[in-house]
Each structure stands twice: as C-alpha cells, then as structure tokens.
Simulated scan of single mutants.
Amino acid sequence: MRKRTYEASEAAKREICAALKALMAQKPLNKITVAEIMQSCGMARQHFYYHFEDLYDAVRWMFDQEAVALLREHDGVMLWQDGLLQLFQYLQENRAVCLCALHSISREHLKRFFQTDVHVIIQGTIQRIAEELNYQVSEEEVDLLTKFYVGALASIMEEWLLGNIRETPEELIRFADQLLKDHVRGAALRMAETPPAAEQTCRGGS
C-alpha cells in the first residue's frame, strides 16, 4: 500500500513538472502560476502543494530527476565524461526551459542543483587518477582541486547554455578531462622530484 502511494505521488510530480516545463519554454517563471500548471495537467490547484512547497521546489525536483540523475549513473573514472556529455545533451534538448530557470533563479541557487553530484564525481575521478599514478594526494588537496574544477565546469556549462562558448560539448569535455589529468600528473611529478623535508633540512645544514 505504501509503495503504491509513493508511486502515485512520483507519477503526479512528473505530470506536474511536465506541465511546468511546457510553460517554462514559453515564458518566464515569474509569469507562471500554480493555477495554470494544475489546469494544464487536469488537477486541482491545492494538489500542487501536496507535492511541492512552491514553483522553485518543483524546478529543483525536476532538474534533480532529469539532469542530475544522469551524473549519478556515471561515477567511474572512465565514465564521468559520458555523464557530463549526457548533461550537455539534456541542456541542449531543454535549452528554453534551462534558460528560463537561469534567468528566473539566482545563478548561485541554480548551480547548487548540480554542484553536489558534480562534486562527488570529480572528487572520485581525482582520487582514482592519483591512485593510478601512485600519488599520495592529501584530503585537503583533493578538496581544493575538486572545488576548483566544479566551479570551472559550472561556469563553462552556464556560458555554453547562454551561447557565449562555441565549442561542442565533446570538445569541452575532452579539454576538461585532459586538463584534470595533466594537473594531477604534474602534481605527482613535482612530488616525485621534491626531496623529503628531512633531506632538505639535512642539505641546508651541511
């Protein structure tokens, strides 16, 4: 019984969000009302609030189910590029809706929709590359590198969506992948060439 209730709730959410997406492709989010969304999907207005707090909560759920889910399926070092490519394809296929969200919601709020999952994927990728190179990377370095690349990727996606970057998604992902690997390889090489602190102290004292 509980499973059926959950499935019915999820189906209702998807139907509401489908109606919301159709409207977002036509006009700004602040011009859309709950009443017209629910009228579009043949439900009573109050049913919206059984599932969502407000329109922004519905947008968040929609992106989480449709876009962020693509990233969660690709968390391996050889697969994260595929996840990002699918995300770019989602942005392309839903460009009008995504631009509506971008112009209607603060950029920082919109980035948070993706940031957590992108963070996990990039963090795991850095750790795996370091392991392949036998590079003992510290937690602090992993965290800093992850934040740097997550911020860079979020900005690239935003600029690409706005039409300010002409490169294809494939070109952007290849560039990001090579940059990330080169960064970790460079750090590993630098560490291999740097003598231990004790050795440096000994040389300085001689």
Score class of each variant (00 low, 15 high):
A11V: 06
K111D: 14
E15T: 05
R95A: 03
V68G: 09
Q92M: 02
G76H: 11
I16L: 03
L29E: 05
E131C: 06
K3E: 13
L29I: 15
A25M: 11
L110A: 02
D75L: 11
E15V: 03
A96Y: 00
V120C: 07
M78Y: 11
T33Q: 10
Q26R: 13
Y50W: 15
L99Y: 06
L87K: 02
N94P: 04
I126F: 04
E36D: 12
L84S: 02
M38E: 13
F63S: 00
L85Q: 08
E73P: 01
V137Q: 07
Y56F: 13
G83C: 10
Q115S: 13
M62S: 03
H109P: 00
Q81W: 02
Y56D: 09
Q39T: 14
L71G: 01
L70K: 11
I105H: 03
A22N: 12
I129L: 14
T125N: 06
R72I: 10
M24F: 08
L85P: 00
F88I: 02
R112P: 00
D75R: 11
Q39C: 07
L55R: 11
C100T: 04
E15W: 01
Y135P: 05
R14W: 00
H109W: 05
R60S: 05
V97P: 01
L84Q: 05
L84G: 01
Y6V: 14
Q123V: 02
S106Y: 05
I105W: 04
F48V: 04
I121Q: 05
G124M: 02
V137Y: 01
A58S: 06
N134S: 15
I122Y: 10
Y135D: 11
A44C: 12
V120Y: 09
C98F: 09
L84P: 01
G76S: 12
L20A: 02
V118A: 12
D64W: 06
R14N: 07
E36N: 09
T33L: 10
A35C: 08
Q81R: 14
A58D: 02
H109I: 08
V120S: 07
I16D: 02
K3F: 11
A19F: 02
K13H: 01
E73K: 15
R72F: 10
